[in-house]
Design a protein around this nucleic acid. Structure first.
Lengths: 118, 118
DNA sequence: TTGCTATACCTCGAACCTCGATGTATACCT
DNA sequence: AGGTATACATCGAGGTTCGAGGTATAGCAA
């Protein structure tokens, strides 16, 4: 029981992916969910309960702006990234690369810390 | 205030790093803390309140085994990885690489999800 | 008309993890 | 005597993801 379906490593990743995908073109939430799955070959699959709160928060913080659209009776909320959002994206992407590189360094050889402490 | 010192992306990373470093040679907690800093050029800096609980949990799960050592009056608990621990390490490392690759794919071009949903 | 699926939004609580503070104790150097 | 480094440990706060649940329209088939 209590088996973990997702092996972690995902902290902060949803926000990063959302910002990155919206930096290419505006999208609405449901579309974003599918786009994330498609663009990662179903490796990353975030639920709605994960994405919607992030969209609300990013908009509230001024990193995204939204516009309501009605298509075939269905209401959509289309989000686009703002200048502040791009700035945040760059920062988060840089942080990701820094951490990603550090982990890979530990994983693939490059020991160093050999004689750390006596 | 309430500034976040660490920009996330770190979920599960401490355990992965601990397993990897201990797979090279046995170490004790304090030594591990320094080794992590050194081998990542101070990019990854986990506190004691993060590492010690992980060591206890991994030992309890059978992924690590410990042995008490007294050196110069100071007591050390030296941990070494078990066969089960190596298995876990391989699994976690594979998961990391899968997720890492997916995020990088989203970050650097390779769009795809273009016409996801109508 | 009824039911099912897909679309499309939203919210809540449970579970998990990291972080910083705090506490104990010994060794070494000044 | 006091400060620093070593060495272990625990706790609560804070933040995040996940899964379940809720609302509503559109389209198709039985």
């Amino acid at each position: 029981m209590t088996k973990k379906p997702n092996p972690d490593y995902l902290n902060g990743v949803p926000e990063l992916v959302v910002l990155q995908l919206l930096s290419r073109r505006p999208m609405y939430g449901y579309q974003l969910l599918r786009a994330i799955e498609k663009s990662t070959g179903n490796v990353l699959e975030f639920g709605e309960g994960c994405i919607y709160p992030i969209l609300h928060r990013l908009e509230h913080e001024g990193h995204l702006a939204s516009r309501r659209e009605i298509v075939g009776g269905r209401s959509r909320v289309v989000y686009r990234i703002t200048a502040a959002g791009r700035k945040r994206l760059h920062g988060r992407a840089a942080a990701w690369q820094s951490i990603s590189a550090a982990v890979n360094q530990v994983l693939h050889g490059a020991d160093d810390g050999k004689s750390a402490v006596a």
